[in-house]
Design a protein around this nucleic acid. Structure first.
Lengths: 135, 135
DNA sequence: ACCTAATTTTGTAATTATTACAAATATGAA
DNA sequence: TTCATATTTGTAATAATTACAAAATTAGGT
């Protein structure tokens, strides 16, 4: 598993380290779009010397190289997604739950002239099943 | 103009005040997706007693009632859009410029079961014409 | 116009996510 | 091992936003 993760990182030109592997592995195994703080707290028990700064640095590096996505789903803090393939997100504005869905092919948009698109994010906000039920 | 703006606010169930009219008018006249700080600094010269808190409160109220949009385009701070109709945004990751475009009809997405969508945001990130030119 | 109640604004202080930075540690090549 | 480089750590700074209470404004009833 570590070897696989190391290969995955290598495919994005990222040198492995204990911390980088842990963060990447956490994102792959927990597809809940966690925040930096969430990841830090989850890893701390098994890596007591881990620093918050390392988590932030690592997430920035991973996102920069395209191994993960940094999602602006929430004005308060960034969420991260171990699946770098573009896809659609459904965000419950009541409980904060985040659901994935396949990204439908968007109709060709009329981008501003000369604009080169590098990534596309589609976010649907609303109320999830659970929150709908408990009116 | 103030009367029109007041009517506009009223149509969203918002009582007018000097500050609310100023913020709303600023957003309508300056469709550049400003931040709260940007609006505060722009209005300050003509309203020296204006408080930052009022700008934040007003923007929250306007967004809550649907008179404006709060956009999560940028992890650092929220941007606001005086046009509450859903539309697509193109964000230049080099210079920060934001362009509008009509929202293409999205193909019917497979929302998670029981999820009620209330708003949809489509953001394309990339490099704008100007930044492309100055390689 | 006046009084009172309710709403809105103001200013300061707190909160919170994130970044800057320098020292400490770990890694890899020679 | 030794030296140079890359990475991690911890603390302090930054910056957007919110909490909150006091001051000011507004609206309705007399």
């Amino acid at each position: 598993m570590n070897i696989e993760t190391a290969q995955y990182l290598a495919s994005y030109g990222i040198k492995p380290s204990v911390q980088r592997l842990a963060v990447m592995k956490y994102l792959l195994l927990n597809p809940v779009h966690p925040t930096a703080e969430h990841i830090y707290e989850a890893l701390l028990p098994s890596m007591p010397t881990l620093s918050r700064t390392t988590v932030y640095n690592t997430l920035s590096l991973l996102a920069e190289r395209g191994a993960i996505l940094r999602l602006d789903l929430d004005p308060r803090q960034a969420h991260f997604d171990g699946n770098p393939a573009p896809h659609t997100h459904y965000v419950c504005t009541r409980c904060g739950a985040i659901f994935d869905a396949a990204l439908q092919d968007l109709p060709p948009g009329s981008s501003p002239e000369g604009f080169t698109v590098s990534s596309t994010e589609v976010v649907h906000k609303g109320i999830c099943k659970n929150c709908n039920r408990s009116h």
